[in-house]
Simulated assay, not measured.
Amino acid sequence: MEVIAIQKSALEGMKNELKALLELTESATRKYSSIFKEEQWLDNQEVCLMMNITKRTLQTYKDKGVLPYSKLNRKNYYKLSDVRALLEAGQPYNTNDNGFTNK
């Protein structure tokens, strides 16, 4: 076993930084938890499976503003209600077997 000795002040500084990081994490969690409790959110894969579309078609929906989305930590999320509304309205673009869209 390796033993490393550091000054007590350095250890206290590390503890304080870890506490601050924990507080930031808890704050962010509280900030966004109410948003996620109000509405069920889906990621890209869940939307593609639910709508039976390819990732490229989903990208087209995003690019054309057909399906609204929110980005959190570089990941896209979609409201379940928006996905259901699009399904009920009929998908504006259909994909063929090779994943390309037909307009």
Score class of each variant (00 low, 15 high):
Leu42Ser: 02
Thr60Asp: 10
Thr25His: 14
Glu88Gln: 08
Ile53His: 00
Ala28Glu: 15
Arg84Thr: 08
Leu24Met: 08
Ser70Gln: 04
Asn76Ser: 07
Leu21Gly: 15
Ile6Thr: 12
Lys71Leu: 05
Ser9Met: 04
Asn96Asp: 08
Ile6Cys: 05
Met51Arg: 01
Glu88Ile: 09
Lys31Thr: 15
Arg30Met: 05
Ile53Thr: 02
Lys75Tyr: 10
Leu49His: 12
Leu72Cys: 08
Phe100Pro: 00
Tyr93Trp: 10
Thr57Val: 10
Leu49Asp: 15
Lys19Phe: 05
Lys19Thr: 09
Asp63Asn: 12
Met1Ala: 13
Met51Val: 04
Leu49Trp: 07
Asn44Ile: 10
Arg74Gly: 10
Val83Tyr: 00
Thr25Ala: 15
Tyr69Cys: 09
Ala85His: 00
Gly90Pro: 04
Leu18Thr: 10
Lys79Ala: 11
Glu38Ser: 07
Gly13Asn: 08
Gly99Val: 01
Gly13Gln: 12
Gln40Tyr: 05
Thr57Lys: 07
Gln45His: 11
Ala85Thr: 04
Asn52Tyr: 01
Ser27Gln: 12
Asn102Trp: 02
Ala89Pro: 01
Ala5Leu: 13
Pro68Phe: 05
Leu49Ala: 10
Thr29Ile: 11
Leu11Pro: 02
Ala5Tyr: 13
Tyr61Ile: 00
Tyr93Pro: 03
Arg74Tyr: 15
Thr54Phe: 05
Asn76Met: 01
Ser33Tyr: 06
Phe36Thr: 15
Leu24Asp: 12
Val83Asp: 01
Pro68Asn: 12
Val47His: 08
Val83Ala: 00
Leu49Cys: 08
Leu24Phe: 07
Tyr78Asn: 01
Asp97Met: 00
Ala89Met: 02
Leu22Lys: 15
Trp41Val: 13
Asn96Val: 05
Tyr61His: 06
Thr25Arg: 14
Asn96Ile: 07
Asn52Asp: 10
Ile35Leu: 15
Asn76Phe: 06
Leu67Gly: 02
Glu2Trp: 01
Leu80Val: 13
Cys48Ser: 11
Arg84Cys: 05
Lys15Ala: 14
Pro92Tyr: 06
Asp82Met: 01
Met1Ser: 14
Leu42Pro: 04
Ser33Leu: 09
Tyr32Trp: 14
Met50Cys: 03
Leu87Cys: 00
Val47Glu: 06
Leu49Tyr: 09
Asn98Tyr: 14
Met1Thr: 10
Ser34Cys: 08
Ser34Tyr: 10
Glu88Asp: 10
Tyr93Gln: 02
Arg30Cys: 03
Gly13Lys: 07
Thr57Phe: 03
Asn76Leu: 02
Met50Ile: 04
Glu12Val: 14
Gln59Ser: 11
Ile35His: 11
Leu86Cys: 01
Leu22Thr: 15
Leu72Gln: 12
Glu12Ile: 14
Lys8Leu: 09
Leu72Tyr: 15
Tyr78Cys: 01
Val47Ser: 07
Lys75Ser: 08
Glu38Cys: 05
Glu38Ile: 04
Arg74Asp: 15
Gly90Tyr: 04
Ala5Ile: 15
Leu67Lys: 01
Asp43Ser: 06
Thr54Gly: 13
Lys8Ala: 11
Val3Gly: 03
Lys31His: 12
Glu12Ala: 13
Glu46Asp: 14
Asn73Phe: 14
Glu12Thr: 14
Asn52Lys: 12
Gln91Leu: 10
Trp41Ala: 07
Val47Pro: 08
Ser27Pro: 00
Tyr61Ala: 01
Tyr32Pro: 02
Tyr77Asn: 05
Arg30Gly: 03
